[in-house]
Amino acid sequence: MKAVAPAAVVFVCAGLAPLVVHDAFLLDSLVLILIWGSAAAAWNVAGGYAGQISLGHSAFFGIGAYAAGLVVTRWELSPWLGLAVGALVAMAIGLVVGYLSNRLRGPYFVLATIAFSQVLLIVGSRWRGFTSGSEGIPVPFRPGFWTLGIADKRVWVWITLALAVLAYLLQLYLDRSRRGYQLVAVREDEDAALSLGVPARWLKVAAICASAALTAACGALWAQYIGFVDPFYVFSVDLSVKFALAAIIGGLGTALGPFLGAALITTVETYLRAQFGGIGTRLIGIYLIVYGCALIVMVRWVPHGLVGWIGERLRRRVTARAET
């Protein structure tokens, strides 16, 4: 699935939607889909393309959210600066994490990443002097583009769309470039890739760094959009699983997949919220049960996700037509 046309259609539609749709609820959903889609795409760079399955990616998301929140509240600077700081910090930490975990494979890597995000959760929720501890950070609304105090959801659609396109282009690069081919080879069999001259260790670290920076950017924008940073949410394992799940549902290692997966997840989530609005925490439980079951079913029966499944259907139809 390396055709660009479907993705171009999806992104152009998303870009034009605010001109047609004025319903705040729908626009809000679109913004969230684009943020979660970008985060899932960022996860996909490490998990799908490089085969570095992380369940601690919320750490990078949280770093971005905190960077944006703290830069605004503590130093009263622009959240755009916070976004840049968050991305750089996440990249630096990604470098360390990637380097240290380089030899870890399969479940060991997963365990290490979970532990890492738990460390940040504890630091974020207990370091009262710096992060305000478990109360989290309310991000003040200061009107203006530079301060990202934007009430108009249409503008948010375009901002997050830019992020989404950036994430997509990074994946497209991996689909088509030399480094992308090499990275996929590392995912398939690291030793074989090494034997063919692929600098596997370096590529894995680079993939984790890029993925971390992009995830942090998502976190920074999300914090500004929602207006609040809760350590127990932004550093949670559930959030990491959400990124992974969106990518898996959409199609691991495909450029468009994470966005499709995020669209599906966010829609289901919003639908359930609208449907069972009154039940409070139990509602979260219901869609998380759906998440869990979807995860089990997808990896077993639809390993290539929606993109793989649709691609397979199309291919069959084409060959069937060719035969008649």
């Binding site: 992974a244 898996i248 979260i284 998380l288 049960i289 869990g292 995860l295 990896v299």
Partner: peptide, 19 residues
């Protein structure tokens, strides 16, 4: 990877079933 995600999925489903 399939094993990891299957048991993680099971974990999420059970945890939230209890919830």
């Amino acid at each position: 990877n399939v094993q990891v995600f299957t048991t993680v999925g099971l974990s999420i489903a059970l945890q939230n079933l209890a919830l």
